Simulated scan of single mutants.
Amino acid sequence: MISVQDVYVTYEKRTPALRGVTLDFHEGEFVGVIGLSGSGKSTLLKTLNRLVSPSEGRVIVEGKDLSRLSFKELRDIRRGIGFVFQEFNLVDRSSVLENVLIGRLGYQSSVKSFFGIFKEGDYRLAEEALETVGLGEKIFERGDRLSGGQKQRVAIAKTLAQEPRVILADEPVASLDQNSGKVVMDTFKRIQEKHGISIIVNLHDVKIARAYCDRLVGLKDGKILFDQRTKEISDEDITGLYR
């Protein structure tokens, strides 16, 4: 599905954030990317939909080299790759439904996007996404009246409204309390198991990563230290990653 081939990323002639990373992500996986702050986790995730372009190497999505795509082709690819950020990225003064409908803008013409014109099917998808994340009853609530965990689940619903094949999530529970974080991770797991959507998530908490992810990629100083099934990773592997 996504192939990262010998990728380097360097910001303004500094030490490379990624150094020769090669990885393959497959359909239906739940993959956790772990490592210290500054290890390259966020950079790696952002290369997967070309929010960050590699300085060297290639990222291939469904057989297409992202660096060779036109704006329209990249836009089409990005519709199938949802991205959930730590900061929620919601419009606080808009309703939950209006926020989720933003996920449909990639399917709209520029004129319809500008005026916020959506089809009946768009509303149905948005409502289904909210039911999936357990917030169907909040559909007309304003964004600024939600808790942090609820806001993150609305962000996930917005991504689901894109009808993605893969969801990327960058530290989605880092700013949440333990209970809210569990609800969010349970939501991701349910989406993976029920819909077969691949989940690739950056996590700072190793216990959460081990509890939810089928496979773990350990990044250290921009390089892959390990890439294994979660059950095969030892405590020594984890200690070496954070040493």
Rank of each mutant, 00 (worst) to 15 (best):
G134A: 07
F140G: 05
F140H: 15
R142D: 09
G143D: 02
R145P: 00
R145Y: 11
R145Q: 13
L146N: 02
S147D: 07
Q150C: 02
K151A: 00
Q152A: 06
Q152D: 03
A155D: 13
I156F: 07
I156L: 07
Q162C: 06
R165L: 12
V166N: 06
V166P: 08
V166Q: 09
I167P: 05
L168P: 10
D170I: 11
E171R: 08
E171S: 09
P172A: 11
P172L: 10
V173D: 10
S175R: 01
L176V: 03
Q178I: 14
N179T: 14
N179R: 14
S180P: 00
G181M: 04
G181H: 03
V183K: 11
D186W: 04
F188A: 03
F188C: 04
K189N: 10
R190T: 12
E193H: 07
G196P: 10
S198D: 09
S198T: 15
I199D: 08
I199Y: 10
I199P: 10
N202E: 00
L203A: 05
L203W: 05
H204A: 04
V206M: 01
V206D: 01
A211M: 03
C213K: 00
C213V: 02
C213L: 03
D214T: 10
R215V: 03
L216D: 10
L216T: 06
L216N: 07
V217Y: 02
G218C: 09
